[in-house]
Design a protein around this nucleic acid. Structure first.
Lengths: 145, 145
DNA sequence: TACAAATAAATCGCGCACGATTTAATCACA
DNA sequence: TGTGATTAAATCGTGCGCGATTTATTTGTA
């Protein structure tokens, strides 16, 4: 038998799903001008914050495994955005470092982000509050795995 | 130059991205027991609400285009969950109808949803409020396309 | 009644996400 | 010091999402 719980969670998950899809559709054409995909953009954001990270540490930051990251990083290396080198201190790990081209994109990213914020809403305080609630949700879901 | 706007939108979009990924990872093993993927589950939810819909109408409900839906629906048809028939009144459109097997899964879906709700949080009122805020965001992003 | 425009779905190619497995390097400890 | 366990990344196969294009049917209109 069905109860009210079905409707709730189903819609919460679908709200997330459709909002995330919509966000991706909004970013896609803006990023495509710079030859980037949305996950690649997120990798750049992570590296702008801290360059020279191990693949595994990037995975922790982005909540992605190497089965997703490795091919993604290889494409970005081919595109000249970053370099991958085995860690001399531990040859099991791989260090990811931005190239000048990868670093330079940080400037243009600011412009893209302004478009997104403008589309998301006019109340920055409320957007920040929403973001924080979604982060809490993501953390709970992640811990429940 | 960078300003505070970059940090905000980047984190809002990443919060959505990671929460959606986490939700998918939570659903995946539960749905896999019934041979379903997460988007396939959403299609079923849409059809449980209203059966016998055109592909295009399903796309409106799920905010997906036929390039995503057609192969997805074909896999579901192969799995015996639904049937696809050309609309006799307008042979351009295709009607999607649940099979008995597809209808029967509605029972088990309630159980799955209870697991998800339990993982998402303990305050149902707050979860509903969050869901509604995310829906508003999704609508704004969709309209901005 | 032809025939261009429109509409609906399907097709194609690419890049994710992820479960499962494999390969390679390091560690632990007998 | 050797060898099994652990760790880190890579590899493989499947199913999305979506931009771009194609195919098939209907509509509008001269």
């Amino acid at each position: 038998m069905l109860d009210r719980a079905l409707t709730l969670d189903e819609l919460l998950c679908f709200a997330l799903y459709s909002a995330n899809n919509a966000m991706g559709r909004l970013y896609r054409p803006l990023l495509a001008k710079h030859g980037l995909t949305y996950p690649q953009y997120l990798v750049l954001v992570a590296l702008w914050q801290q360059d020279g990270r191990k693949v595994g540490d990037l995975g922790l930051a982005l909540t992605l495994e190497t089965n997703t990251l490795t091919p993604l990083l290889k494409r970005m290396e081919v595109a000249g955005l970053l370099q991958r080198h085995r860690n001399p201190e531990d040859e099991r790990s791989v260090i990811v470092s931005l190239t000048a081209k990868g670093k330079a994109l940080e400037e243009t990213a600011a412009e893209i982000s302004r478009c997104i914020v403008a589309s998301a809403g006019d109340d920055l305080v409320e957007l920040i509050a929403l973001k924080e609630r979604i982060q809490v949700l993501a953390k709970r879901l992640h811990q429940a795995e």
